[in-house]
Structure formats: C-alpha cells, structure tokens
Nucleic acid binder design. Structure first.
Lengths: 132, 132
DNA sequence: ATAATAGTGTTATAGTATAACATTGTCATA
DNA sequence: TATGACAATGTTATACTATAACACTATTAT
C-alpha cells in the first residue's frame, strides 16, 4: 500500500492541518486561498486532498453547507456514519457521537427492506448562544 | 396572504408537476431544460420555485446529490424533518417515513444541550435490485 | 529493477446557485 | 375602487462548487 493512514501525503497534511486549526467548517475555496502560500495553487489539489481525507475519516463534509470539518471523534475511521448539529444562526457545527444513536440508526430499514452501510445526519436549530 | 399552499403560482406549478412526474431526484438544470418550453428560461426562475416548494414541504432537496425529489409523504408540511435511503449504485431514492424514527430523533440533543427544529438524514447503501 | 499504485501540477471547463434590478400580479382593507 | 404590501416574474450577469483530462513524479512491494 502506498498510503497508510498515519502517513499522509504532503498536500493531504497541509489541508488537514489547516482544517484542524479552524475548528469550524471551511469551504473548499477558502482552504485553497489559505494554502496557496504552501504551494497548492489549483482547485483539484485541494479537492483531491479533501476526498482522501474524507475516505480516511479524518474530515467530514457538511453536505448542506458544502463545507468541510475535522473529525471531532475517534471512531470515524471505522463507522463511516456521521451526525452533526448545525446552528442556523451562527453556523457553528458540532459533531454528535452518540453510541445509542448510531446503534439505533444502523438498524433502520427503508420500506423496501434496504439496509445501509453509511448515513449522514444533519440537525438544524439554534445553539445556546444564539437562542436569545 | 398572496400565496396559499393549495394555490401555487404558475412557475411553482410547472416545476412541481415536472418533479412529481419524475418519481426520482432531479437536478435543477435538468428541470430548467425541461421546462423551457413552458416559458421558464433562466436558473433563478427554477431555483425560486424550488425554494418555495421546499418551504411548503412539497419537495425535498437531497443534499448529498444536489437534487430535488417530490415529497412521498403527507406529513412533511408540518415536520420539516426528512429521511431518505439512497442507493449508491442506481441512485434510487426512497423517502423514509417512520414515526418512531422521527420521534427518536426529535429527542436527541448534542453535547452542548442544543435542541433541534429540523433534521435531514440520508442513508446510503445498495437497494434490493443492486445488491446482486 | 520494475511494475503497480498513489500523488502532484496544470489548464480548462462543467455544474450549481445567487445577486441585483426592473416589472407585474394578487389581495386585504381602507 | 384605489392603494399599499407583499409575492412572484423576467432578465442579465456573475459567483461559487467541483471535476475532466493529461503529463509527470514518488513510493513501495516483489
């Protein structure tokens, strides 16, 4: 294997470092602008790193926002299942790691009996600060 | 009120009709191309109709696919909470309406005690047909 | 050494969505 | 019935998000 999880490539490291420092979801192009000084000049370089980091479970994509956030969990390499709370006012995102939730969801079937190997759950509301 | 739910505007009707006939998620630009013969010529006309239809609960956006599907439910006008199963092979999408699921999720809190007024849940897997 | 796979750099382009502004339609009520 | 408030429309331009395609380099297992 040319790539182990502990051994990120140069661009993957640069992108992950930047996302981890942010502690909030970041847009791909804002990542791009901020890592240009490190040599990543074009969108594909960023998107490729993002894709790999997602595969590895190091980061997650917040689908409803087209943004990317560092994993705040330890189990994501295994689970491939994600849940987030999103404040509709300040955009703060928190990853939810709730074992009984993931257990509950992993047993859900749709009406055709389809079973799942992955899910993404996004909750929306107002965080404590924004709730007046 | 200039707009009741039963009384859609011209563009909203055209877009909803088209989506309901499809029985599958549609992309905004594919909707646009297909309703051009009905007079909707530019993206904002379609996106505005989509936004209103989503507000009304008539359609939902599949966030992970940037596509739009007619509501397969009756309760969505009230709930604002959605769940879907998505086949990763054939892209078939089924809306999940499971009362105990929505009850369970509506009681979830994140670690900061944030409560929610809406969620979107997308399950991924292989549908029966695609599972060999 | 070398083949297989992963990663990089680059240009161009595809795909998704909104800003902004002028105009028209609808309807409650004054 | 006119008028004010709001919703919807039509239009052009542009912003934002993401991938195709191709040439090249790096890493590693055998």
């Amino acid at each position: 294997m040319a790539q182990k999880q502990e051994n990120l490539s140069k661009n993957q490291k640069i992108v992950l470092d930047y996302i981890e420092k942010a502690n909030q979801p970041l847009k791909a192009y804002s990542i791009l602008f901020n890592v240009q000084k490190k040599g990543l000049k074009a969108p594909p370089q960023v998107y490729r790193a993002l894709d790999k980091l997602i595969e590895m479970g190091k980061i997650h994509k917040i689908e409803s926002r087209n943004s990317y956030i560092a994993c705040q969990n330890s189990s994501c390499q295994l689970e491939k299942a994600t849940a987030f709370s999103i404040c509709e006012s300040c955009d703060k995102v928190t990853e939810i790691s709730n074992h009984s939730l993931s257990k509950y969801l992993s047993n859900i079937k749709d009406k055709n009996g389809m079973k799942f190997n992955r899910y993404n759950l996004e909750f929306f509301g107002l965080c404590k600060k924004c709730k007046v």
